[in-house]
Every structure is written in C-alpha cells, then in structure tokens.
Design a protein around this nucleic acid. Structure first.
Lengths: 142, 142
DNA sequence: TTCCATGCAAAGGGTTTGCACTCTC
DNA sequence: GAGAGTGCAAACCCTTTGCATGGAA
C-alpha cells in the first residue's frame, strides 16, 4: 500500500489496467504516498507544487479514472466538495464540521451491526458511516 | 408528527420560534405532511403546484431556517444535491445510486456499536449511516 | 416606522464538457 | 496516422447573495 516510488505507482496503475502517463504518475504520487483525504482542488494544488502546468481538467478526469478502477474512493461528506480517499480498506470517517478535518475510524472505534433487507434486484454497494463532530473552541456564533 | 393541517404546521413553526408566514406554511405543508426526503428543487416543484409564484430563494432561505431550528435534517448523500429529511427521529438511510431513491432504515435494520474517542474540545454532533445499493435491473454500462 | 420576509436576478464555486493539440504506438 | 490523453476555457448546476419591494407589529 505504501507506494512511494514512481515505479510502485506505475505498477499500481498497470495492475488496475490504467495506461501510465506522466500526469497520472504525478497525481498518483500525491494520492498513494500515504493515506490521504483530499478534495480535487487540494490534489491539484499538491501536484502543481512540482508540476505547475497540470490542468484542472486532467485532475478531474484522472480522479474519475482512479475511482472507476477502485484505486480511490469518493467520500460524500461535505456538500461543498467531494473528498477522495486513497485508502480502500473498509473503514469509517470522523468529520469535523468546524475545521473540515477528516480522519479514519477503524473497527475498534465503531462497528455496524445488522444488515438491511435489500429489495429484489438490488445489490449492496457499500456502507458509509460518518461521525460528525464540532470543535467547541471555534464557536460559530451565527 | 403527522402535521397535516395548516393549524398544526403553524403550531410547529411557533413552537420552534419561527414567525409564521404564508410561504413557510406552504413549504411546511410539503415537508411535514409525512416523512419525505426531498431536494430543494423538489420542494420548490411541489410548493409551486399550489403556489406557482414561490421563489427559489425563499425555498433555500426557509430550508435553512427549518434546519437551524431542528425541524428538518440535511442529508449529505449525493454530491449533486442536498436532501432534506422531515423526520428528526434518529435513523439511517439506504440510497439507491442508480435510481436516486432514498429510504429510511430503523434500528431493526442496522445499529452502530461503539463510540469513537473524541479529541479534546470536540463534541459529537451526529452519526450518519448510508447504505449504498445499486439496482441490477438498470445496468449502467458506461 | 422599523424590521424581517420575500422575490428577482446575478454571482459564486465545484465540476463537467467541447475542442484543439500532443504524445505514443 | 489513429487513438488516447491533456489543457484551456467556457458551460453547467446547485446554491448563495445583494438589493429593492412588501407586509407585520
């Protein structure tokens, strides 16, 4: 999982059936150097630190390719933006609505018990759990 | 909970400390006549069936007022739009990513066990559980 | 009269798309 | 040279905002 070198990332892409390109390697480097939760814009910003000419459209295209090939997961947590999670291990999330911080929860923290009865012709895709928390420090006195 | 008449809705608004207006009654009628999951646009459409002059801005304003007063809950489930849930009972959701259908799950279907350790100065707001399913019937052969 | 609610239209922000250019095989 | 990948800019859609009108206390 800890794919740090370009060689590892290239292998990861090939294993997923994704043709390797320079841009995809750079985006992969940002995503697969460790477990991260990043919005598309954050990915773009990090890639542009090393590759300023990277296009926003390429970021969105590539994120969708990665997602379709199960290399990353889309997190629908904030109505403002989609987060991309580079960890495909089953796990849940804790989201600080005040700061926008997002972190992982393991099975030690939380577990889902029971399985809902699925209607005819319907397949389970995944179960998302989001623990929303609020920092007391930063009071939003609206 | 089954607030059907305008009188019931007016009471509900007053109880929540929300000044009663014609528009809020109409929006309340759509939301509180039964348990519903509607996007802002769907609320607008239903209100306009009876009140075609209702403004989109008023819908958004009112939904936010209702949400702040804990009359409805925002569901962050689909990146395209926010759904508003007229049921404040604690419950979870099943979402069909193919059809966009959304339904409730009770404690008989699913339960969350354990509580995550919250960082210092952080308060639990709520725990969302979304069971994502996919209809086999409508194959999305992309 | 003062304040809040409403409506319209324009702006805002994340995401998608159209199209031309480039690169690879 | 065919096809995919990329980059730019404009388009898109949901949502928010500014501002003027209107209604209630």
């Amino acid at each position: 999982m800890e794919t740090n070198g370009y060689q590892d990332i290239a292998d990861k892409l090939r294993d997923a059936g994704i043709p390797v390109t320079f841009q995809r390697l750079e985006i992969g480097r940002v995503l697969f150097s460790g477990p991260v939760h990043l919005s598309a814009d954050q990915v773009l910003a990090r890639v542009r630190e090393k590759t300023p000419e990277m296009s926003r459209a390429t970021i969105y295209n590539t994120l969708k390719v990665f997602r379709d090939r199960n290399l990353i997961r889309e997190l629908i947590i904030d109505p403002e933006r989609i987060f991309y999670d580079s960890s495909m291990h089953p796990h849940y999330h804790m989201y600080d609505v005040t700061t926008g911080e997002l972190c992982d929860l393991g099975p030690d923290d939380l577990r889902v018990v029971g399985k809902p009865v699925l209607p005819e012709g319907v397949a389970l895709e995944e179960i998302d759990v989001i623990v929303r928390v609020r920092s007391r420090a930063v009071e939003v006195t609206a």
